[in-house]
Design a protein around this nucleic acid. Structure first.
Lengths: 335, 335
DNA sequence: CTGTTAGCGCATTCAG
DNA sequence: CTGAATGCGCTAACAG
């Protein structure tokens, strides 16, 4: 292991001077700097960030905890964060909580233990996720996509409730009456709000919300499949289904396929999160399109500002989603 | 910032004893240990891994560099790695090189600078990716999905060549003759081998490989789209296309859709990497299914063994892929 | 402009 | 079994 001392000795200077060269401080004699550079190359020296971090009491790493790395929604967002972080000289450490509060807690510990510069979290649960220790340690935290109940933090969200309402209103406008909803876990704000938006739409049109037609699943393919099948096996099945995330929509499509039903004639479908393959299936899928990459950008910018010392009350950014109307929710053909 | 000294003072012991408690060393008086635990809780003490890493000269973090975080193939693999790492007490840091050798180099630097315990890399280029410095630092490295030219490292691969050959032979068996290939960058081993497999299949059947029908794209949606369109605009377009990864297949499907062509009657299609939505499109997509999660598991196990000190020559694990036959490559209807 | 000195927070000697 | 002393590799503060 070649250290700063070895370089100093080889260049005939003191370790402090090597350190100055490494940190590109202007107050170094060009000739010495050159000798140091040469020694660094010659010895293949790689400064230890571990030591540097200890000494400086700061790191150049951000931690980002998402709840499902297999969900394209999150990975698109990650790209937005990454681009800002990379541009500002930070590295991004990605952690996958797998919708599991225990795993999430472990990654939060890691963020604290590594004294990371900042954290971006999409909490696994609005009640079970405890960010307080991280905040108490003075590490800036920004929430994205989902909120938690207690702390006062910067957040970047999509207007889920409005988007969900719009999706269901679209179904109503297209002549569907018995509309079901497959939402996510009710301890996530996205699960809550998308369900609330569904109910908003029904109430607006004077239709009482029918809890018989609401299913709560896990934001994953399997949950969407089971929930959809249970809906379609009702004595009086729904005419249309609003599914509150992309993976569950995949499950819903499989369930419909497995039961041999025709979309939208026998059951119409609107999903949440637009996907690259949505236009390619038959019929093409109507879906709420979220500004995923922009969510990442905004989140990263807020975090960067806090890391740079910006004070003041928490900021809440709310981005709008749009509805991509395609064939799976085509106007109802009454039979 | 509460340190080990604060805890020691609060518990009325020495820092060394606190350290022993933290590391669950058996040689501590139970009563003292209890007092230390109490003090830790009381003060909300969180040991600094930065300091611990410096002192121990080792970390409990793995670095994993993948070339595209938006590609489900990689994220599935990540889950496999994660499960092994998590189980063995390691944390996984995910880095996205975005198929860019420069970004990759930066993340490799990070792995070295942070003195990570091990690295898993899916190199952006078989020639441009330079892992030697990492290896020289004594950090165990395992390659997954792609190889690099020079170093002798453990690798975990899929038998790309054989899988590609099988896919193309399937098209031939189903009556297609003019078969095109959209492959990836030729400085990736996957790009090379899948093309080689395509050529193998053609040669076996006595058909000369036709370079006119080969396109090299970027393993991304846009590249697949452009390559496919250019193939279909040929004076004598192909009867079938073999596309060498999932994202490019998405692009190919869009191109075919945009040109209003019917699959498989006007052009048949076989993709590489099976996707959850592959059975849902019309017609369902025939694709080479890779054992993604298992790739991750095997890779992580090899790395774990090396970290634990296993010596010996490099090990090369090769997993087989399977062909999921669906409608997009149905037997040709001669007109 | 440069070298010397002194820690960052922790784990590991070595005495006791 | 426990505490005091030492240093991991680096940078900040201070002299010169």
């Amino acid at each position: 292991m070649v250290t700063i001392k070895d370089v100093a000795r080889a260049a005939g200077v003191s370790p402090a001077t090597v350190s100055r060269v490494l940190n590109e401080r202007p107050d170094v004699d060009p000739e010495l700097a050159e000798r140091v550079q040469a020694a660094i190359v010659e010895l293949g020296y790689q400064p230890s960030r571990v030591a540097r971090n200890l000494r400086r009491r700061e790191t150049s790493v951000w931690g980002m905890i998402i709840s499902d790395i297999r969900n394209p929604f999150f990975t698109d967002m990650v790209r937005g964060v990454e681009d800002v972080a990379y541009g500002a000289g930070y590295s991004l450490v990605l952690c996958d909580s797998d919708e599991d509060v225990a795993k999430e807690a472990r990654y939060l510990d890691l963020i604290m233990a590594e004294r990371m510069a900042g954290a971006i979290v999409s909490p696994a649960s609005s009640v079970g996720s405890n960010l307080n220790p991280v905040i108490a340690q003075g590490i800036p935290v920004v929430l994205v996509d989902r909120r938690v109940d207690s702390p006062i933090l910067d957040t970047v969200m999509v207007d889920d409730r409005r988007a969900a309402r719009g999706a269901v209103e679209h179904l109503i406008a297209n002549g569907y009456r018995r509309i079901a909803c497959v939402t996510g876990p009710l301890d996530t704000t996205t699960g809550q709000e998308r369900l609330a938006g569904y109910r908003d739409a029904l109430e607006r049109t004077g239709r009482p919300p029918e809890d018989e037609l609401v299913r709560t699943a896990d934001f994953k393919v399997g949950g969407g499949f089971a929930a959809t099948r249970s809906l379609l096996e009702l004595p009086e099945p729904p005419e249309a289904i609003f599914v509150a995330n992309n993976l569950m929509t995949l499950g819903a499509l499989s369930a419909i396929e497995a039961m041999g039903l025709v979309v939208p004639d026998e059951v119409a479908l609107v999903g949440f999160d637009d996907m690259p393959w949505a236009p390619l299936i038959r019929p093409p899928l109507t879906a709420v399109a979220q500004p995923t990459y922009e969510l990442g950008l905004e989140t990263a910018r807020l975090l960067l500002a806090r890391i740079r010392g910006e004070k003041g009350p928490p900021r809440h950014v709310m981005l709008a989603a749009s509805l991509e109307i395609r064939g799976s929710s085509a106007p109802r053909q009454r039979t």
